[in-house]
Design a protein around this nucleic acid. Structure first.
Lengths: 203, 203
DNA sequence: GTTTGGATTAACTGAAACGGTTAATAGGAG
DNA sequence: CTCCTATTAACCGTTTCAGTTAATCCAAAC
């Protein structure tokens, strides 16, 4: 890729990248056209190819960029620096909301990229992501204080259920084309407070 | 469409329809090729056009078919003939699992079709679906006995959360390409029992 | 065993979309 | 005016698309 891309005004960089995140989250790799990305980003297709040598390179840049930004956001929000599960969940989701302000389609892009089946792409993706997610999931279970939970529920099921719900929620927001970070942040907090009330031991 | 389609052996009808559900649930309407459906269904593209005059007609048939089958399944499982929310939820989800045995991609097809933005399609879809879903959601809230729930939780939030989780769960199953109805049925039951324990008033 | 008729397809068509390239333009700085 | 960089319109060869046509396959009827 062409380093000059980074010398563009930040607004333009983001406009182009967001257009790409959007088109790649709506279509499979193969059926996401570079021309559509260009139009969506209000630049010419030729410019896209000027900065990114080809489609695959652009896709891979988006992926690496997504992982890196996610990791930074998690650190910035001190996500792992607590032993309270719901606090950790809140920090994790709020960090994702903050990413969403700059990159509204990043979350769904990742959701889709992880299951991308195109041979050109597949290999480079999953291994890389497993590094991040598996490790972090283990870290979570090591750190959290499970004594605060109700004794009669299965924590793994709870954990799974919560993440299904978050994905389902985000997907709905995304599909109905209303990604408004402020609103999502509020609704996420409502959900977390709800879970807290339901799953924590009463005192 | 050509009525002779229904005179085909049932196995073949389903094979073709399932191929179509699959391709349309992976791609937007515009980018779902008839040729891919044909290949997936092990018939020639020409045969597809012999039974369905064009792509739009096929899509609309799939949609009407999905709605109709869903309604029948809901009735068959006596979904609305109880005032216990979790019993109703179980019947509703098990009825969907039973559909899944014959039509593995129907659920995700519907999820996608509802938000389809192609002008050729959009209008004919949403209104039609709202009839079904809005009415049934209202019926649910009229029928269920809310006295059994914990007093300290917001039922609307619970309701929303549960459906986010189901969608998130199904999406994950679908994306990771492992739609095994028996397994899904088991896991759904685990989830429902989990919710029951969590949300119902203890006695 | 030949005819008939419906099921099925290979091969085709014209148009559009695709990834990627090229050669030219635009516009600001010196 | 000159230089330089960002930018694009126009283009290229290829592939893909929805939809068509004319031919084949095959079983049942005669």
């Amino acid at each position: 890729m062409n380093d000059k891309f980074f010398r563009l005004p930040l607004e333009k960089q983001q406009r182009i990248i967001n257009a790409a995140y959007k088109v790649f989250s709506e279509n499979s790799y193969k059926k996401a056209p570079m021309s559509e990305i260009a139009t969506e980003g209000c630049v010419s297709k030729a410019l896209l190819f000027h900065y990114f040598t080809n489609k695959k390179e652009l896709y891979m840049y988006l992926w690496a960029n997504a992982i890196e930004m996610t990791r930074e956001a998690i650190i910035e929000y001190k996500t792992l620096e607590t032993d309270d599960f719901f606090e950790m969940l809140k920090r994790s989701l709020l960090s994702k909301c903050s990413l969403m302000r700059d990159y509204p389609h990043l979350y769904v892009f990742c959701l889709r990229a992880y299951y991308e089946t195109d041979p050109e792409i597949q290999n480079s993706i999953q291994e890389n992501y497993n590094d991040v997610s598996k490790v972090s999931e283990m870290t979570v279970f090591e750190k959290i204080d499970i004594s605060k939970f109700r004794k009669d529920i299965d924590i793994k099921t709870m954990y799974a259920e919560i993440f299904y719900a978050v994905d389902g929620y985000m997907l709905k927001k995304y599909r109905s084309n209303c990604i408004v970070p402020d609103e999502i942040e509020k609704e996420i907090i409502v959900l977390i407070d709800f879970w807290k009330k339901v799953y924590m031991q009463e005192v």
